[in-house]
Amino acid sequence: MVLHWLSEACLLAGSFLLLTGALGFLRFPDIYARIHACGVTETLATSLILVALLLKSEAALPQVKLLFILLFLMFSGPTASHALAKAAWQGGVRPRATRDAGERPASPAGR
């Protein structure tokens, strides 16, 4: 019973975080802010939802698989965000703030 409510709470928190992440992803002004919005919320929200599902399951094999997904996403999510930000920087996309300060993008980042 406790597990059930714990899992429901995790689901609710995870869904809320997902929504905030999506909002930031849609509304934030430049790519770095968007990566921030997605990457940060996504890791926590994913973990919460997967933990909630973990609490819901009884059999061993699904639990192992969920744990595997959880660990994998915890490694790969932040890495992907990092790689993306780094690639965008190397590709010449500059954050809004420095652009306003007078610096133009170094090279067109490609349409």
Binding site: F75, T79, A83, K86
Partner: peptide, 21 residues
Amino acid sequence: RPRNVVVNVVSKILIPFMLLF
């Protein structure tokens, strides 16, 4: 090539699990 240390190290950890899967 310009190496990306973080991605390389993390992928090195993850690739064995992919092959195992």
